[in-house]
Computed example of a mutant assay.
Amino acid sequence: MTAFSLEPAQLTWRGELRALAAERLRPLADKGEPGHVNRALVAELGALGLLSRLFTSGALDLCLMRESLAHACTEAETALALQGLGAHPLHAHGTETQRARWLPGVAAGTTVAAFALSEPDAGSDAAALTLTATPSAGAVATPPGPVAPDADPDGGSGWRLTGEKCWISNAPEADFYTVFARTTPGAGARGVTAFLVPADRPGLSGSPLDMLSPHPIGALAFDAVPVTADDVLGEPDRGFRVAMDTLNLFRPSVGAFAVGMAQAALDATVAHTTSRDAFGGKLRDLQTVAHQVAEMSLRTEAARLMVYAAATAYDEGAPDVPRRAAMAKLLATETAQYVVDRAVQLHGARALRRGHLLEHLYREVRAPRVYEGASEVQRGIIARELYRTHDTTTEEAGT
């Protein structure tokens, strides 16, 4: 089964992607400015057909793309992933009009998308969002459901978004944002609506954040930003489902990104310990070194298999996708941190020099343990799903 043994065509494609990343994407990435959207790189991803593939293939295909690109060019991997993350809600839940307006540009790499969920005080607890969508003048509400927009005589309709978003990748340089806002106060996860918000909407502003990771991350401020029913993705008050559907797809692929980095660090370590002279022989001849390399390989392969299994479960519509996705992201990101750290240790001081592959990976590998749900959140999801299954089984057995 594909979760444990890739088909020959998939293995070939993975190799081709690694070559493309090294030969065509790496040079463009090197010309980019840290902290800013590299539009030339995004456009090349579109020209290669990789961005359009985000919307025509499944989770396993996405994982293979992210793992392969990450092996040779983490910037290209991240640019591809952010296009997918920002536009997947539109692709899966948008109207025909919305998709026709925005998706062609996303696929071509000429339109930059962003996923705006996190807030200064609501990161991992997405149900605690406070960005508020208040009805515009003339809007009406039908208790106890969400506020329903209705045009007023002066032309006002829909909602006004007020509040902040923070830690948003591609902000403030994206062309549109998938924004999650509270439409029903006090309703928790059931009172959130997803909106497609173009970057040029009046009242929307942003600022970049100086982060450890080189890709762009920023904060957004919403000062009564107008949105209407035509901007809703999915249904009012059901935006949390849109967010979770997106995260269930992308969490395993975050694991794939991590596996790609781990594999790159492992490959570099095998080459280094083979060529490095130490204590009258090669570094790899030392048992303590060889055993560390073996452990790095073991953990990387275990993480890869779990990522593939989670992606295959998503593609097959399995009921335990949230648990599998959480396990895959957790194991793979923690593994990548371990493998890159061990690689740095075995390379010594040279790996700490600015511009070295491992210095770059060391900066890149830390963030995936935090974004799209920190490791602690993933453990919470796993435990919750385990106990839910236990309780359901117990009830059905009548015990």
Rank of each mutant, 00 (worst) to 15 (best):
D320G: 04
T300Y: 05
T246C: 13
T274L: 10
V227M: 00
R238V: 06
A243V: 10
D245I: 13
A271L: 12
L220N: 10
M327L: 14
A264I: 02
A309P: 03
A256D: 07
T333V: 12
V227K: 00
R284P: 05
A318I: 06
A303S: 03
V293N: 02
V232P: 05
R241Q: 11
F240Y: 14
L209F: 02
Q263F: 02
D245S: 13
M296I: 04
S213D: 12
T335G: 06
V293Y: 03
F240L: 10
V225H: 03
L233T: 02
R201N: 01
M306K: 14
A313M: 04
R299C: 08
D237T: 03
G218D: 02
S207T: 13
A262R: 10
G239D: 02
L220W: 08
R323P: 05
T274P: 04
A294K: 07
A313H: 04
A294L: 08
A256E: 06
D267T: 14
A311N: 06
P202G: 05
K282C: 06
H272Q: 06
P216C: 04
R201L: 08
F257D: 08
F279W: 06
G255S: 00
R304S: 10
S205T: 15
H272L: 09
R299A: 11
P226A: 03
S275C: 12
L233N: 07
G280W: 09
D315L: 06
P322G: 01
A264L: 00
A265T: 01
A265S: 07
M327W: 12
Q292S: 10
A309K: 14
H215S: 11
A328D: 05
V259K: 05
T246P: 00
V232F: 02
L266T: 08
T288F: 13
F240I: 08
G239A: 04
H291R: 09
F222T: 11
R276Y: 15
M296G: 01
A221S: 14
L247Y: 12
A311Y: 04
L298S: 13
G260H: 01
K282I: 06
A336E: 05
R276N: 14
P208A: 13
M306Y: 07
L220E: 13
A311M: 02
D230V: 05
M211F: 12
V321I: 12
A326I: 06
L286H: 14
N248V: 12
R201H: 01
F257Q: 11
E334I: 03
D245Q: 10
V232L: 01
V321G: 01
M327C: 11
S213V: 15
A303P: 00
L331R: 09
G234V: 15
P236R: 10
M244G: 00
D320P: 01
G260V: 01
Y308V: 03
T228D: 09
